[in-house]
Structure formats: C-alpha cells, structure tokens
Amino acid sequence: MSAASILSVRDLQVSFDLRPATLFGKRRRLVAVDGVGFDLAAGETLGIVGESGCGKSTLARAVLQLLPSSAGTVVWLGDDLGSLSPEEMRRRRRHMQLIFQDPLAALDPRMTVGEIIAEPLDAFEPDLGPAVRGARIAESMDLVGLNPLMINRYPHEFSGGQCQRIGIARAMILKPKLIVCDEPVSALDASIQAQIVNLLGRLQREFGLALIFISHNLSVVRHISQRILVLYLGRLVELAPAEDLFVAPRHPYTRALIAAVPVPDPLIERAKPRLVLGGDVPSPLDPPSGCAFRTRCPKAITLCAERRPETTEAGPGRLVACHRWRE
C-alpha cells in the first residue's frame, strides 16, 4: 500500500489441528485466522478490533512468528519471516516487541524490575558495562513514568498500571520499530487505561514507532489508531482509516460494532437507534458457508451463503469483505 511499509502481511492463515475427542474420532481443524492481509507503515498505528475469540491475539502472535502460520506470508523490511531460521528470526525480534493483556503474568515473578526491563538489552547488547546498562534501564523506566529507584522491587509489589508500564519499558529499551500491543489496557481500570494509551501515543510520536493495537474496545482503538482492521471469526471484515470507519462503516458488522459503543450521555444514548445482532458467534470449528457473518447479518441474501465475499477495495485505502457493501 504505502511506500514506507515496514510490515506486510498477505493471506495469513493460522490453523490448529485438534486431537480427536475419542480414539477413533476424526481430527478436526480450527482455522483461527483465515486469509488476513494488511500493510503497516513506519510510525503508523493499526488498530485491530473484534469480539473475543475472533483471532486477534492469534493474528498478533502469528505476525511475530510466535505461532506457526499454515499459509500466507509476513514480510518484515523485505524479509519473509516465515522462511528465516530460528536464529535469524531471533535477531529480528530486536525491532519488534510485544506487550500483553495481563501485565502481571507477563513479568517473571522471580526477577526484579531492573532485570526484567534489561532482559532484551542483555540479549542483544550483552557487552554493555554495568554503568551503561544501569543508565539504559533508568532511561527506559523514566520514559514510561516509572521511578528508577524502584529497580530492585519485584513485580507483585506493583499495581496493574505500573506492571503494564514495566512491560512497556521492557519493550522500549531497544527502541524497536514495531510494538504489538495485545489488549494492553483491557485488564486495567478505566482511569489507568487512558494513561497507558496516552503513554503509547506519546512514545509513538517521540520514537516513530509503529503500533499494532489490539482491543475489543472500539473507543480506545479509535483514540490511538490511524487505520482500523475489523476481524470476525478470523477473517478480515473491513480495513479503513479510523475516521472513515466511524463516519461511514461499509460492512454490516462494523456498523453493528459502532452502534454498540456506549455514548457517555444518557439522552443521546437512549435516543440512539439500536442495531443489536442476534445469535452468537459461530464456532470457528464449523464456520458458516460463504460469508462467516451471514448467520447474524441483517442484510444477508442467498449469495452470502453460497460464495465467500472477496476482499475488495472500497474507496481510498479501504478494504471490505461483503457482497453488499455498496448498498
């Protein structure tokens, strides 16, 4: 898409073979991410939204090669990550970091904060002297708003928001080009959420970071993202610049998601037209034929059950996968 794209994902598919429940049961295949593609420019934020279980985290892990993908390519600065040896891949991890949903679980309970933050540094720049290393740790802690004097504390002594800051400090210490944020604020209080989102936004502006920001909370994603990718049952539903997506959603699922965002004003909230989706998300073990969303879609027609909609260009920088997006 854009010329300065650093990451380019094409037709990525991740599937898991499930063991049969009985001895002679048949092996089943769960396709968690199905044919998702996007580009990411340097310094850009791509938000990924979807209901729980739609494959957001799986997508993130497959992009970072933490999970094997069954099809498709992930190209990072010209290298196809899937074809690299483990050691070559490990070297590239210097520039792509991950932060987690559960901030405490992502920190080793037996390491001090200083050691946790220094870990990527120790892996990639092992020859630093103790003074330089200490200064880098302090710098990174300062950057995320942690007092460097807390270097010898253990993770359980911190609140959730502080733990997430520790995770961000660890991700930032090598000044990476990309940070994948897997629901970084979902486990935090609303007041802390804003702080962490603002922190990520500030770091992005200061260091030209690219972010992949995963959340099920559309308001949070809208706040930080330039473009938003909507996933449903592991498939790309719509990809559009953030404002365009909110102003003119093309896909019925996106429309329903946006309608479900609560407005902090009871009068508007009550007057708002309801667009409630019926039914549950189908099982990814047994996805509907054709369009995955057709079982809950208010506009579904017979074509939707027969043929899977292609991902088509719907305006500048917009992709949508729906047979009836024009209507």
């Binding site: 590239r92 987690f100 559960d102 870990e119």
Partner: peptide, 17 residues
Amino acid sequence: RKEFIEAATAGGIRDAV
C-alpha cells in the same frame, strides 16, 4: 504456558537463557 515465557521469546531471548 505462562505469559512471561512468551514475553521472553518475543523479546528475542535464546532458549538456553
């Protein structure tokens, strides 16, 4: 299966380490 092990892998830490 713990996340801090995944965090270490994602951070480029070698298996032996």
